[in-house]
Write a protein that binds this DNA or RNA. Structure first.
Lengths: 77, 77
DNA sequence: ATGCTATGTAGTATTAATACAACATTAGAA
DNA sequence: TTCTAATGTTGTATTAATACTACATAGCAT
């Protein structure tokens, strides 16, 4: 139990991933985590470690600050 | 035991903190963690959660990518 | 030397992140 | 419709991050 972050971090992983035409499994392979971990992150059920955030940002060609934020993202970007 | 990161993240927390004339305790208070947590991070004994990294970056007026990196920093900014 | 402040070290406890397995669901292709 | 790929859900186990306590050390005042 307890799959809900105390202090949530919002992200655009799914948008960025789809923009590159990647599946969760593919992204997971690239960053070296389980494919369900990507799912948990996209659903914001928990927020990643910094290491993982850095790896994901690199794989998606984004700045960490473009992908993750403590305040919700607006639509479309 | 086991206070050594699998996949280390390098950081400039200490430099940035000292540049602002802050003590670890003061920075810890600002970001809401134990003062020793800052110590562990500065000594790179482990790498922070993304939430904490975002908070620290904000407190130190730096971009996450300026403060944290998967590759070592060169000397002097 | 004494005292104080900041920092290091060591140990334990708790919580969050991650892995993983099993099964459900949904959408699209054939 | 059936098949399949992608995703969602639930549950458990392990590991890393964080909290906290106590004590050591080092530098700098006085």
């Amino acid at each position: 139990m307890s799959r809900n972050p105390v202090d949530p971090v919002f992200n655009r992983i799914e948008d960025a991933r789809l923009a590159l035409g990647l599946t969760r499994q593919e992204l997971a392979d690239e960053v070296g985590v389980h494919y369900q971990t990507i799912g948990y992150l996209e659903r914001e059920e928990y927020s990643p470690s910094l290491v993982l955030a850095l790896r994901i940002a690199k794989s998606l060609n984004q700045e960490v600050s473009e992908l993750f934020s403590q305040t919700p993202f607006k639509k479309g970007k």
